[in-house]
Amino acid sequence: MATTFTLRLFRGDAKGGTFRDYPVESEEGMVVLDLVHRVQASQAPDLACRWNCKAGKCGSCSAEVNGQPRLMCMTRMDLFQPGETISIAPIRTFPIIRDLVTDVSYNYVKAKQVPPLRLKPPEADGTYRMMQEDIDRIQEFHKCIECFLCQDVCHVIRDHEEKKTSFAGPRFFIKIAGLDMHPLDTVDRSRFMKDAAGIGLCNITKCCTEVCPEHIHITDNGIIPLKERLADEMDPVVWLLRKFRGVKPKTNA
């Protein structure tokens, strides 16, 4: 059964642009990206939009649908009222290239700054042992598909452009958490977290978690545990316990 919707698509580039309406039919089970493709194939062949897998696995088709950061391929049309006008805007935190496509190189720059893994020496047979319970927690962070919706929605850089130099964003906090909680890692990333990644700028308002299409608990399982790890430095109880147990600190990145 076909239903008609109006897609209100942003068309334009840095020089200027506007929302334009495209009426388009939807069939059962369709998602927003299907309708965008229909517009492309019939009404606006040059409509710029990124996509790859159309299965919620590559994280390319991020956009703001009715003002909410979402993957277009995972937004089903039955979420909307039949006949509804649906606005689709590019993710607004990054510079625009054209229409729905933005320049996300900020994220690739930040990715490179994170101090990588440095492993302990292996077992006698040259391989490593890790138990499932050691990695359960960080496997959650490895689900990240790098759609950058969390980066888009994070008000620290969304509403304060100047913070882009000093703030890495939620995606990279869970990257750091995944490395820092790695059972075999030996790098101390606390300076990096505080200074270069700017974790103190995060006021844990949790929008990153709300928009994550992989349902990663970015704030509760990633950012807050990192903030707590930093708080260890100021905790006399922890200090005493470490002295008592003879725990060796990690080395600096």
Binding site: K15, G16, D103
Partner: peptide
Amino acid sequence: VAGAVPAGPGAARPP
């Protein structure tokens, strides 16, 4: 980390 021509200082957000 050359992006598809990285955004320069003047690169603007969606208007």
